[in-house]
Each structure stands twice: as C-alpha cells, then as structure tokens.
C-alpha cells in the first residue's frame, strides 16, 4: 500500500533529496536538488532574491539529461543560507495560497455574473 504522510496530489518521482555541495559554509552554500528543474528552480530563485539579506542567488541545471538542479545562495552576515532557503520556500507557499484564493474568488464572481445573464 502506498504510504501517505499527508494529502498528496502529485506523483512521487522518487525520494526528494537535497544535499549541500562541498565547500559551503553558513553564509555561502550550493544546494543540489534531485528530481527538480526550472519549474521550481527559477521560482525559488526569484523568491530568495526578494530577501534583502541575500547577497546572491542563482540556479543551474548541470546537465539536461540528469534531473538535478543546483541552487547557490550567498547571504550577508546575520542570516544563514538555510534560513534564507527556508524563508524562500515559505514565501513561495504563501504566494501560492494568495494566488489560489484570489483565483477562486474571481472565478466564482465571473461564473456568477455570466451565469446570471
């Protein structure tokens, strides 16, 4: 039987894995994401760059045949890269919530107004 720790709507592509690439410290690190591509990479890069404590954030895909994505974060003193990454992920989730509620409300209004005609 499939294990479901919480409501899952997407297909599992295998164990999600993050690791930190060698040569990293508290304020400068490169993360490697498995089974991810531009979809999450570019979106996450944008959210992390919106954080004024972040000096640099960029992502790359080392080879298109492998489903690996590298994300480099450099922060100013005062924030760790792990905090920056977690904040980026949290902010992206908050953004998704706002999009969902706004879209649903607008869609319902539109359906009601065109239905009433």
């Amino acid at each position: 039987m499939m294990e479901q720790t919480q409501q899952q709507t997407s297909i599992e592509t295998g164990p999600q894995r993050i690791r930190v690439l060698p040569g990293s410290n508290e304020t400068a690190a490169s993360f490697q994401f498995d089974q991810e591509d531009h979809t999450l990479g570019n979106a996450l890069r944008f959210m992390i760059m919106k954080n004024p404590e972040v000096e640099l954030c960029g992502y790359s895909i080392p080879h298109p045949s492998e489903a690996k994505m590298n994300l480099r974060i450099q922060t100013y003193e005062g924030t760790t890269v792990y905090d920056a990454l977690e904040k980026g992920l949290d902010d992206l989730m908050d953004l998704c919530d706002v999009v969902t509620t706004t879209f649903t409300d607008t869609r319902d209004d539109f359906a009601a107004s065109t239905g009433a005609e």
């Binding site: 709507t9 979809t39 992206l92 998704c96």
Partner: peptide, 27 residues
C-alpha cells in the same frame, strides 16, 4: 480548465513543502 490551474498552484506549493521536509531532515 480552472480546476487544472488550481491543481497546478497546489502542486507547486507541495513541491515547496516536500523540499522543506527534505531540508529539515538533511539539516
């Protein structure tokens, strides 16, 4: 179609949640 867009937003959210869990386990 509208269901599909909402599903797409929730899948993006879930990718983030899954990454967060992975990060928490890793650190």
């Amino acid at each position: 179609s509208d269901e599909l867009f909402l599903e797409s937003v929730s899948i993006l959210k879930e990718k983030c949640a899954s990454m967060k869990r992975g990060l928490a386990e890793y650190t």
